[in-house]
Design a protein around this nucleic acid. Structure first.
Lengths: 222, 222, 222, 222
DNA sequence: TATGAATGAGATTTCATTCAT
DNA sequence: TATGAATGAAATCTCATTCAT
């Protein structure tokens, strides 16, 4: 695969970078490979061998750094959640008028899940397992509540300005936005097949996104 | 393992007539056991042994009747879809005013999935597998389109009576109702844990159902 | 073991004996192989592969019948204890004068362990594991207490006849006989090496047995 | 794994003098940790990682100082034997009347093994491995024969004084004392479980010690 | 002397499926 | 139609040991 790279390594008289020896990088590489494997095949379907194969390290290192397949899976879950929360922070919702902020957040959420389907898939997989792995994570809740705070702020502003309903619960709103955004990812295959519906063309996705934004707008507007 | 028992059965002069040997009953029993096992543990997590253990028959019979674990899984999927479509037909939406028909359908859908979570779970599991098993079913689409027809009829009536928007696509509406209803089942564990939200108490469920009906009502109303 | 039985089944026009299909025999074969492997290599040193190789069945059957390496090991322990207790019953101590009964039992115990070192080895191995596997056995104590009963009877007779001490505790005596008999098996290698002592020649063994009988005789005599 | 810590150490201008780097101390620490690990878990059950974890050094040092797990185990065996022989020398048996000397030695041996069970455990473990590791030690026999000499001297004195039998072989006597003393350590779990006997309370131990001393006394007395 | 990172070989266990009657 | 026994292939995990600095 990377014969080029290998060549480079053996060049020069400095014996050089020959093998990784970089814990952080190895860990990150494993995590990245695991996110893909788990989201594509589920906890039981994922193969530790496959994860290792997507890496420059080997199977043994997965156990060295993560202890077990399950603990790796928990790390993957945490990482996937962390990423969407970080992406959300780039939105700067505070700088937008309330209505537009909600619209922006809705569009972002829909787009994010469509373009990064891993989290959505991991989440439903974890629910098949009744959430017992996620519940082992101590930190998961702490960093996720940021999105609820952000929504709450926007709703407060909107209420003050009289442009948004006063009786909207931020968690409820987040649930709705999530449900409508995730569904298109987590149910695309069955819904497409069963109802003979194009779920994946650019037009179909754009059309659905518009619809979702519309649903949310009507829901929050006074 | 239980050799004693076996001995007892084959000994004695009482011949083979003793048990009814009802093929249909065996098949139905296997299917019922499989629905539970697959919905609880996923396709990979499900164990043929466990399915057999939930039955009065044995493992070999599963292969005799269904050929393979995968084909049994497809049969399970079809059966679960068939059941909700049959339940929907009891609603008699044609006898209700359009707005009320939509509300009734929404409440039914939400309740059905909450009380019969197997279909919801099977569907997300199947999507993890990119819907490749469902797509093997020849009949799946045929009997499922009934719900789209039913919604289309209601929307047409609503438009004619001027109480519902004219530009609502029935598939789009079904997708929205499904998304909001399924989410509460398929994401209850993670959402509850991550956002510290009660998802399961009677009050929480009733409150969410009210919200979902509200969202849909605002969405379809002129 | 019971080839006779098997023959009976496959005779007539039904073809051939090709593969076992005899649960009891498979189980017994595995158990016999496991006794040797565990007693020779310990719980950790024993290899499931090696046990299977000593069998006409395969590795998978070990899990089919015993569940795990540990549970097989417990079955092995139970079986080894059961065998010595059964052998003891052939001694008919009740038919011997008390002093001779004790002597006979001592000689038997010493010989048994020397000729069948598996139990002795299994026992020390199990003690390295702090007896946690044996303590999982429900039945172990029940059938082992027979030896204590037998000794108690002899001691009672001896006391009545005035030929044996009245204050000997049967468990204490069994412990002493066991200690002296087992030591020659469980410590033969180190004791031989460290103290440059022949522990294995027929003469050495006979001499030690005589000594042990002497020790016990002096101990129980009035 | 603890990268932060490592950074701190190699950073800064404080040079390498910071830690004493006492080779002898490291070696002794490893040996002490290994004695516990091997005696608690056996040769195969012991983990090099665990031994390192019981140390202030790391796994690599074990290989640096001892070469391999097996050679470390041999070192452990030698060390354990050396310790009991040194302890015995404190007894000053020569200063006691012969009968009392034997009694003192018996009590000491019983107590020593009960309070320091490592040697007893290591010895049976080594016997499971047919003594092949111990036989590699060149020195083991040389320093162990001291106990045989000591016993021989006492027996000679006792015979001359007419208080002890003339026909007692010192190795045989040591074997008997060892067997009775070690048994209580190496078989405590199984014997306790199988025969429902308290083996560990202070009273039980004291009672058994008394019994052992009694057995030995009757054995050596004229 | 000291240490975290890395690994190959091999161990136990799992599981869908088939055999033989 | 029914069933216990059997199995190959492959999965997860373990562990002593070495690498590279």
């Amino acid at each position: 695969m990377d014969r080029q790279l290998k060549m480079k390594r053996t060049n020069g008289d400095a014996p050089a970078v020959s093998r990784p020896r970089d814990a952080e990088r190895s860990k990150a590489e494993i995590l990245a490979a695991a996110i893909r494997e788990f989201s594509e095949r589920g906890l039981n379907g994922a193969r530790v061998d496959s994860i290792a194969a997507r890496t420059r390290t080997n199977k043994r290192m997965i156990y060295y750094y993560f202890g077990s397949k399950e603990r790796l899976y928990v790390a993957v879950l945490e990482d996937a959640y962390r990423k969407i929360r970080e992406a959300e922070k780039q939105l700067r919702l505070d700088n937008l008028p309330p209505g537009e902020a909600i619209r922006t957040l809705t569009e972002f959420t829909f787009d994010y899940h469509w373009r990064n389907p891993q989290l959505a898939k991991l989440v439903v997989i974890e629910n098949v397992h009744k959430g017992k792995n996620l519940s082992r994570s101590k930190t998961i809740s702490s960093f996720n509540l940021s999105i609820i705070d952000a929504i709450a702020k926007v709703l407060r502003r909107g209420a003050e300005e009289g442009v948004l309903r006063r009786d909207i619960d931020p968690v409820e709103l987040h649930m709705t936005v999530s449900a409508l955004s995730l569904f298109h990812v987590t149910n695309r295959y069955t819904f497409g097949t069963v109802f003979r519906r194009d779920m994946v063309s650019d037009e179909a996705v754009a059309q659905r996104k518009k619809e979702v934004v519309d649903i949310i707008s009507r829901y929050v507007s006074v």
